[in-house]
Design a protein around this nucleic acid. Structure first.
Lengths: 210, 210
DNA sequence: CGATTAATTAATAGAGCTATTAAACTAATC
DNA sequence: GATTAGTTTAATAGCTCTATTAATTAATCG
């Protein structure tokens, strides 16, 4: 059943496999997903997975690095200076939540895969560091100005970013546990996250006061 | 080479296997650890692992539930009412950090294993819920009193606990990534965590102000 | 000492997984 | 209508892992 010929980069089954693999990798991680399972979900023979992507590692690498890079790029592009500092912070929280709600499993995958394969981090860091440093400098300048003006308590940029990252990311990383502990369904949990976003803004903005 | 006989519950090799397995499970998780590897680290034949613990699952379950239960119990026993509310919060942060520094890999294991095996959470929840509820009620009473007295801004207990959990746990859960991103060695990262603890206290206490 | 019992190992069955190979199939082309 | 090239499958080699079984070793005790 070979339908479309001459479609070097865009074979429809190739895409199907890619999407199936993406879903499974996000659900269960690299080691817990087999190429047999990917093929099953895509509705094709297991050998075809290797025909298009050669190895499971290469298939994963392609999905993972692409997903993570666009995710982190969007993360970095959120910051728009110019408005009042409080607006900036609130805007970052909103945008992060927006992005995280669209990719709720990605943070967990990042943590688990980068924990077992440190090599991956180095590559990503090299790629993204230049784009990040401009943002960091700009943010730091703003923060120091706010502190000098007495509108924000003295603190380092690293502290602020860790606060932000912690408060934003943990409800996503710990979702399976928190869902059970709080006894919420999937939709209820998402509902809770929307409320949580507002709470995080309050916590964060209050915590900046001198 | 069967050396010590008659040691039903405490056979030295049984203990060695247990400790080897614990280390490996904490390092790499359930799926990534093989009984062959456990035996190798313990210095015995692979069959012996099954002789003592029957299945890998049972071996893991025993280590995991014991570790997690004592960990969470200590977590719950930290709270000592009576002092000023600020002291209480600072004390909780200190004690959580103390505990986390002694078990830095456990939160990650909890997240990853409870994510892939939701059944485990239910059991743990049933066991620990009664002990937790007393604590929660007491904390809630204190919090509401502080709010009524105008010393703390209006907020729910759940919000406070999520803030606390997020700020405390994330640097441990994200350790492998953050270590690379910040370019820190293992000892430097631990040093950073000690500083971070103070920052978290400041952030948290400031964020409570009305 | 010789029997008994627990600890330990060697060997292996059986399953699943990755990756490769050769063959079969499909559709366009000449 | 045969050729050709890309797509898909069946079959399988080879590996690793879990779990079991039977045999071996060591200590104990009557």
């Amino acid at each position: 059943m070979a339908r479309p010929k001459q479609n070097p980069e865009n074979s429809s089954m190739e895409q199907t496999i890619l999407r199936s693999a993406e879903k499974l990798f996000l659900d269960k991680g690299f080691a817990q997903t087999s190429t047999t399972e990917i093929a099953q979900k895509a509705g094709c023979n297991q050998a075809l997975v290797h025909y298009y992507f050669r190895t499971k590692e290469q298939l994963f690498e392609r999905i993972f690095s692409e997903k993570v890079q666009t995710f982190i790029r969007k993360f970095l592009n959120i910051y728009r200076p110019g408005t009042a500092f409080e607006e900036v912070i609130a805007g970052i929280v909103d945008a992060h939540y927006e992005l995280l709600m669209k990719n709720p499993q990605l943070p967990t995958l990042i943590l688990s895969e980068l924990a077992t394969n440190p090599g991956r981090i180095r590559k990503l860091k090299q790629t993204l560091a230049p784009e990040a440093s401009a943002l960091l400098e700009s943010l730091d300048r703003d923060l120091q100005a706010e502190i000098a003006a007495g509108r924000v308590r003295p603190m380092s940029l690293q502290s602020l970013l860790l606060d932000l990252l912690s408060l934003n990311a943990l409800p996503f990383v710990a979702q399976p546990v928190l869902k059970q502990v709080l006894g919420l369904s999937q939709t209820e949990y998402r509902q809770m996250l929307i409320l949580r976003r507002e709470e995080v803004k309050k916590t964060l903005l209050t915590s900046l006061r001198p």
